[in-house]
Nucleic acid binder design. Structure first.
Lengths: 335, 335
DNA sequence: AGCGAAGATACAAACGTTTGTATTTAAAAA
DNA sequence: TTTTTAAATACAAACGTTTGTATCTTCGCT
């Protein structure tokens, strides 16, 4: 393995000059910088990252912590973040928490041991407060939260505009003439779900519809819970459901089908997240799309700007978009 | 940050003893080992991984390189590998190649710079040989290939039993009475697809059916290609398709639907990989399932055993399983 | 020519761990 | 008690980089 000293020797300079040259420091003359970087590639030099990290006190690695990598939202967000981080010389270490706070702590400890430069995190649903996050992050490490955030924690936060997304989605159902619209809401310890609930309520209120707690279902947003909630919603006279997740929407959708209820004629469904499967069902499932790739990009950018001393990124809100598909369209398009 | 020397000082021993104690070396007395590890947790010691990696020449990190993390197969394989690696004190750094050899080289270079202990890789479809892999891996680094492998490269290989999976899938279609069975095959530079093609051909031959190259489609296995191939297959009189991927199966399935052809009565479809969406379509799409979680586990285990000097893991074949669903079942179940 | 100020490079220490070798201590044998 | 052996720990160097400080050039200016 060729080191910085090998290059130094072969050119008759010192390792420090080589180091500075490769880092692009203004302290080394342009001509020598060029000579050094040329022989570096010639000799096949590759930086020893552990050595660099040890000396600098932190690595060129950014940790990304998410509940699961096989959700459309998270894998896209990761891709977005990865792309901009790679462009800036950082590599990425991805950790799954499987929605468990215990695994989240383990992941953060690992990242801490590896002296990562930053952590981009969307916390597990079982994490009820951000205490364990702050405890397992070094003060120099830059923390960026995205999607699911604890607003009491410091640092940049990239979030969906859940309130308005939910509002628009609910409004869309009302516009399509649905009268009794229920909501599969998720658990209220996650801010994102609370915002969606509030958007839903606001949309109803604005259109003069009373909020009925009997048709709001607080449960995990997986297919099975959606199915159950769907059945109950139908029993309670709902003719539409706005779901905080696509898998719960799928459950409700299948429940309606199993009851022999026609979608969208007799029952409207709209989910959230724009998972791939929603587009290929027949009828296709409407969904409130996020922009996960963009959110990942923004999170990475927030990390990069936070690297600079005086920066202060704060909260960034990314819009959501109603993808109206067959499952909620019973009026002819007017355009 | 508390270091090994801090612990040493507080106990009146030397750093080397602490290091050995924490590593569980037999060279330190049991009683001192206990005392050391106790004060270590008491003082909140956390190993500085970069320092450790620098000294040892390699890190406690394993790189996993896959085409995309949002494919059911890969995200499950990653989960499997992650689980067993974490149990053994390794963390995981995940790289996506987006099927591009260029990105694959970048990923390998990054892993090399980080002195990873091992690389688990499923190569990009545009990687035509393993040369660039060998070139960008240090000789001490353990290379494990899984799913898509280059058999000319050394080291453990964990593969699906693609031949028999394809054989069984094709056989299943024949058994269901389909007479003219086409194949969407993928590109032949990936061994997995070649094996599937051969399994398909063998099944036909064994049942006395001639192989017809006109109904074998060599194209990328995405939805769009599947749709096109599906149309052509129908024109050429096929009454069933075995597809090397689920997305191409989906394309063909939609093509048949668009042509007003009934599935499974007039046209049978079976895909490969058991993606989530195949289970929720109506009719549900049959698929030849792999065991990705198991493959990930095996790959990680192969890495761990390769750590031992005299080990020689070789090739491991993991079976596949036909998940017969509505899209290929037109006879009543006989059991 | 002499002086001062940048400009360019050299020097040297440090980051925290691991590990081969040397030394001390304890136990066993004589 | 002395000698031999083994067990336990101490010593010290090394891994490759980065970075503050020191030294040496080079140039422009008077």
């Amino acid at each position: 393995m060729v080191t910085i000293s090998d290059i130094a020797k072969s050119l008759g300079v010192t390792p420090s000059t080589v180091s500075r040259a490769l880092a692009g420091s203004p302290r080394v003359k342009e001509s020598t910088r060029k000579a050094i970087s040329e022989t570096a590639v010639l000799m096949g030099y590759e930086r020893n990252e552990p050595a660099s990290s040890l000396r600098k006190g932190h690595s060129n690695v950014v940790g990304i912590v998410v509940p699961r990598i096989n959700r459309a939202f998270f894998s896209s967000a990761i891709s977005g973040a990865e792309t901009v981080l790679n462009e800036h010389g950082y590599s990425v270490i991805i950790c799954q928490t499987h929605e468990k706070m215990e695994d989240e702590i383990k992941a953060l400890k690992t990242l801490k041991s590896n002296r990562v430069a930053g952590v981009l995190i969307s916390h597990a649903s079982s994490s009820l407060s951000g205490d364990h996050i702050m405890k397992n992050i070094r003060p120099e490490t830059i923390l960026v939260q995205f999607d699911r955030v604890f607003s009491e924690l410091p640092g940049p936060k990239i979030v969906n505009d859940n309130f308005h997304g939910a509002y628009e989605g609910t409004h869309h159902l009302i516009e399509q003439g649905y009268k009794r619209i229920g909501h599969i809401a998720g658990f209220m310890d996650t801010e994102a779900y609370l915002d969606r609930l509030n958007g839903y309520k606001q949309a109803l209120t604005d259109m003069g519809i009373d909020v009925d707690e009997n048709i709001i279902f607080y449960d995990s947003i997986v297919e099975e819970s959606g199915y159950k909630a769907g059945k109950t919603a139908i029993e309670r006279g709902c003719d539409a459901l706005y779901c905080a997740g696509d898998f719960s929407a799928l459950g409700a959708y299948l429940a309606a089908k199993d009851c022999g209820i026609r979608i969208p004629e007799d029952f409207g469904v709209i989910g959230t997240a724009n998972e791939f499967f929603t587009t290929i069902m027949s009828p296709a499932i409407s969904s409130i799309a996020q922009h996960p790739y963009e959110i990942g990009r923004r999170a990475a950018q927030a990390f990069l700007t936070s690297l600079k001393p005086e920066s202060n990124v704060g909260q960034i809100v990314v819009s959501m978009e109603v993808m109206a598909r067959e499952s909620s369209l019973r009026k002819k398009e007017k355009r």
